[in-house]
Write a protein that binds this DNA or RNA. Sequence first.
DNA 1: TTTTGTGAACTAGTTCACAGCT
DNA 2: AGCTGTGAACTAGTTCACAAAA
Lengths: 227, 227
Amino acid sequence: MVALNLVNRPNKRRQAPDQVSELTTNRLSIYLRCLHELDANGVQTISSQALAEQFQLNAAQIRKDLAYFGEFGVRGVGYYVKELRRHLRQILGLDRKLRVAIVGAGNLGLALADYPGFRQEGFEIAALFDAAREKIGQHSRGGVPIHDIKELKRIARRERLDISVIAVPAPHAQLVVDQVVAAGIKGILNFSPGALHVPEDVKLKSVDLTVSLESLSFYLAQGEIDG
Amino acid sequence: MVALNLVNRPNKRRQAPDQVSELTTNRLSIYLRCLHELDANGVQTISSQALAEQFQLNAAQIRKDLAYFGEFGVRGVGYYVKELRRHLRQILGLDRKLRVAIVGAGNLGLALADYPGFRQEGFEIAALFDAAREKIGQHSRGGVPIHDIKELKRIARRERLDISVIAVPAPHAQLVVDQVVAAGIKGILNFSPGALHVPEDVKLKSVDLTVSLESLSFYLAQGEIDG
DNA sequence: TTTTGTGAACTAGTTCACAGCT
DNA sequence: AGCTGTGAACTAGTTCACAAAA
């Protein structure tokens, strides 16, 4: 019983539950990575228990996460690796290429443009953007072209950009986000520190390096007190 | 029960509660950033309500977070900006310089070494490490020297390194983490994808770019189904 | 009056434990 | 027998609401 949208939603939908928590979607991505490996190693089936042992996780957690989306397992057997992988890719929307733009061709932006973790199956870094005249027209080492930020809207349409990574200094971040939103991009991964505002239909995820470091610092400080 | 060192712990300690959640420590860092700004703008006092409005947060949440560590506010007034900032810095262990090493002098490692968010008050990027012969002896653009990873233990001691950032390809990550741990470093910020294991007394935080992107992809895919 | 600090109520997320399928 | 899928129990985290302080 799948998505049929035209009719009223049935109470229990399997394809898109009312609210899947971010914790769950993050874990789905982790499961998927593990399934890649298992498949590469020729493993055919895996139980939730065996999967849970790979990470610091409870088997019921994994079953619950998957159960939001369907019944993928076989009782007494576990999950077929290839099949579950296919399902997860579909659920995560990785069954097509997503086109990513990076705004900010500074050290970080350029590094991200060529970062293997970003050039992975399912994603494609299609463009870099910057405001600095001398950078425009250049390329990253890996060959991603740097465009004028003013061209964002036009190129977003032409290149069918899905996701934008924000790697500009904090003071410009909100302005850039506004431009990204205006260009119709609905997914943003932000590396600038500080709070940013987006409309409801845009999904913003932030990675705040300062917060991560300071939080680490807290634990170090505690460790010294507590022994 | 817990570590009792020399004396029994009083039931209610203010300096280091038994378990402060990571969510709380992350927020403390966010509050601190905001207090910097407020202070720079000459603001003297701030209420939890006003602070909460800056981010997507509830005022009681902020008061609770702070209350773990002491009574910093004044009823009817709010919090004195300078004073609270001083307290938060102390709580987060930022009242001294923390020395950071980055392992992996690839694109990402080099970018992080010169990233302003990392060169911030409280932190100092003291060294880069790599295994590639041709990189050793070089410097990042910002002047951070690149050492042989084999020297990690020696230099960690000499330079009194507190935190290590892991920016190496996934297959080497666990090996590098083991070396970092062996060098006596107790705080690790990891950018490699995949699960890593550390002893109990070492704090590991991971930023997984693939997971972030794939989680974004999920929301994009849902958006298209749900309308 | 204003705003904190905090128990109580609530909400979200995790784990348990077991019925039911293979 | 083995393992999933899931309600129930539990744990963690957030918000409410109000007494107490300035």
